[in-house]
Design a protein around this nucleic acid. Structure first.
Lengths: 210, 210
DNA sequence: GTTATGAGAATGAACGTTCACTCTAGTATC
DNA sequence: GATACTAGAGTGAACGTTCATTCTCATAAC
């Protein structure tokens, strides 16, 4: 129990450091944020920080892990939704509108980094794979329940949904004028068109300008 | 004419260097590609390279410029298309399927870089703005011609189309298993649903698995 | 007194950039 | 036609800086 208290303190310290690193990374990117910056943000000397994380890579990996946990957890929203389209809307709202600028930025950073850092790529593809499975399961369940049409390739649909999510997310982090809350209804309607049973599609839309 | 020949040689050399830099950047990213790498790829010493470009930043900027020119040029495809949806399909095919891995990767790199490098951000937002204008013009023309419904907010629709493009593009550069040619028909059908006049929407789809 | 916690100067590699210099080819001078 | 001169393309070692990481030493906890 003495040991668990110490371990707890260690773990807390690690979380603090990850928080600081997350702020730095989402502000300046993985490469432009120096360890000195992170030490400053964490109120800690480099030597001490290295007692908790063996390298900068390890910090990046730690942050990816946390991100994965968050992403998977957000699917709890879906499980409690009354039907597929409500669940999807909730997920989209959470993922694309509610998240802070910093969270979106960090996610963009991870995606970009995964293009060249094999370690990050492995972690990121793991997250991706988890999310794809969850989406596929959602679609499968909805199809079984008869909430969506059954002549759509569910795998391809999952890919499309992920691409939609990525696109909105990137637009947010790259274009300061982009308003996710304006675009989201159109997106949802499009998806509804794609997946809903025939006959319930041609709902007129009128949105305010972005 | 002596002078123009020299100027031509200079310009050729600059293009060669940009080509080399583009290869390096799309392979390793802006930050991991060193000037030495680029010099090696260009078959040239650093000192000489610096006679053509004053800094690494200038190389990045030069590449963004070229990218912009390419993007704008690709809209020529649309102008020659018989109708809106055909033009859109051609554009999507060109932008999302036909482009090489290197081109897509470079584009991803520019987007990521624009999040923190103000110089690149300015260039990138310029490109974005150009493209948005072209898309908006396409939509406006289609609406005037009566090819698409007229109760959709065209600005929001342009945003959605750009987000779709970004999403597909990113998926391509990040997920090695992603098959744009499989997802594209679904995307186009969704967009058709969103924009086409009511009544021509609920076409059943059956795609092969990704 | 031993161990955990911390600070911060020191280290060495990598990087963008510069600089003194060479090589090549064209032009003027004799 | 041979020689001297010039411009500019090209070289690559060296410089200053930045950065991740490590080393040394001090303090607090038990």
């Amino acid at each position: 129990m003495r040991q668990t208290a110490a371990a707890q303190r260690q773990s807390d310290r690690r979380t603090e450091i990850l928080d600081a690193a997350e702020r730095c990374f989402s502000r300046s990117g993985f490469h432009r944020a120096s360890m000195q910056d992170i030490c400053g943000e964490a109120g800690m000397s480099p030597g001490n920080l290295y007692r908790y994380f063996p390298s900068k890579e390890a910090l990046i990996a730690g942050i990816c892990e946390r991100n994965r946990a968050d992403a998977v957890a957000s699917f709890a929203l879906v499980d409690s939704a009354p039907d597929f389209f409500t669940g999807l809307a909730g997920l989209a709202q959470h993922h694309l509108v509610d998240r802070t600028e910093a969270e979106v930025g960090l996610c963009a950073e991870i995606m970009a980094e995964s293009r060249r850092n094999p370690e990050v790529a492995k972690l990121y593809l793991g997250i991706e794979s988890d999310i794809r499975d969850r989406i596929a399961a959602m679609l499968k369940l909805a199809a079984d329940r008869g909430e969506i049409r059954n002549d759509v390739d569910l795998d391809a649909a999952a890919s499309v949904l992920m691409a939609l999510g990525d696109g909105m997310s990137w637009r947010r982090s790259v274009d300061p004028e982009f308003q996710p809350e304006t675009a989201l209804p159109l997106i949802l309607q499009m998806v509804h068109c794609l997946l809903a049973k025939p006959g319930d599609c041609a709902t007129p839309v009128k949105e305010t300008s972005r």
